[in-house]
Simulated assay, not measured.
Amino acid sequence: MTDIIKLSQARRGDRGVIVEVGGHTHHQANGVELERRLLELGFVEGARVELLHEGLFGRDPIAIRVDDMRVALRRHEAASLTMKRDLA
Score class of each variant (00 low, 15 high):
Asp68Arg: 07
Leu52Phe: 11
Val19Lys: 04
Glu33Ser: 14
Thr25Ile: 12
His24Val: 08
Val19Pro: 07
Ile62Glu: 01
Leu38Met: 09
Leu56Asn: 12
Gly46Thr: 14
Asp68Ala: 06
Leu56Ile: 15
Met83Pro: 02
Val71Ile: 15
Leu38Gly: 08
Asp86Leu: 04
Leu81Val: 13
Asp14Val: 01
Thr2Gln: 00
Leu52Ser: 06
Ile18Ala: 07
Leu34Met: 15
Glu40His: 02
Gly16Pro: 03
Arg70Phe: 07
Val17Asp: 02
Leu38Pro: 04
Asp3Asn: 01
Asp67Cys: 11
Lys6Ile: 05
Arg70Ile: 09
Arg59Glu: 05
Gly31Pro: 12
Gly31Trp: 03
Arg15Asn: 04
Val71Gln: 07
Leu39Met: 12
Arg11Ser: 03
Arg74Ile: 09
Ile18Gly: 04
Asp14Pro: 01
Arg74Trp: 13
Glu50Ile: 02
Glu35Phe: 01
Ser80Phe: 05
His24Cys: 11
Gly23Ile: 13
Val71Lys: 03
Asp67Gly: 12
Val66Phe: 00
Glu35Pro: 01
Gly23Val: 10
Lys84Trp: 00
Val49Cys: 03
His26Gly: 13
Ser80Asn: 15
His53Asp: 09
Gly13Val: 11
His76Ser: 10
Asp60Tyr: 02
Leu41Ile: 11
Glu20Tyr: 10
Ile4Trp: 01
Gly13Ala: 06
Ile4Val: 14
Gly58Ala: 04
Thr25Ala: 09
Leu7Ile: 00
Met1Glu: 14
Leu38Glu: 06
Gln28Thr: 10
Ala29Glu: 09
Glu35Arg: 10
Glu40Ser: 06
Ala63Trp: 15
Leu7Lys: 00
Gly42Asp: 08
Asp3Trp: 02
Asp67Glu: 09
Gly46Gln: 13
Val17Tyr: 00
Ile5Leu: 08
Asp67His: 06
Glu45Trp: 03
Ala78Ile: 11
His76Lys: 07
Val32Leu: 13
Ile4Arg: 07
Leu52Arg: 11
Ile5Glu: 03
Asp14Ser: 04
Met83Arg: 02
Leu41Glu: 10
Glu35Val: 10
Met83Ile: 12
Leu38His: 08
Val71Phe: 05
Leu56Gly: 11
Ala79Gly: 09
Arg36Ile: 08
His26Asp: 14
Arg65Leu: 08
Val32Gly: 12
Lys6Asp: 10
His24Asp: 10
Leu39Pro: 00
Gly55Glu: 06
Ala78Pro: 04
Ile62Phe: 02
Lys84His: 01
Val71Tyr: 04
Thr25Lys: 10
Leu87Cys: 06
His76Pro: 06
Leu41Tyr: 09
Asp14Thr: 00
Met1Ala: 14
Ala47Val: 15
Gln9Glu: 06
Val17Ile: 12
Arg65Asn: 10
Arg15Ser: 07
Val21Ser: 15
Met69His: 15
Arg65Pro: 11
Ile18Val: 14
Ile18Leu: 11
Leu81Trp: 06
Asp67Tyr: 06
Ala79Gln: 05
Phe57Val: 14
Ala79Asp: 14
Gly23Gln: 15
His24Ala: 13
Glu54Arg: 14
Val17Pro: 00
Pro61Tyr: 04
Val66Leu: 05
Ile5Pro: 00
Ile64His: 07
His53Lys: 12
Arg11Met: 03
Leu39Ser: 12
Ile18Thr: 05
Lys6Ser: 08
Gly58Glu: 04
Ile4Gln: 08
Arg48Glu: 08
Lys6Asn: 12
Ile62Gly: 02
Leu52Glu: 09
Glu45Thr: 15
Val71Thr: 05
Asn30Gly: 07
Arg37Lys: 10
Gly31Glu: 02
Leu41Pro: 02
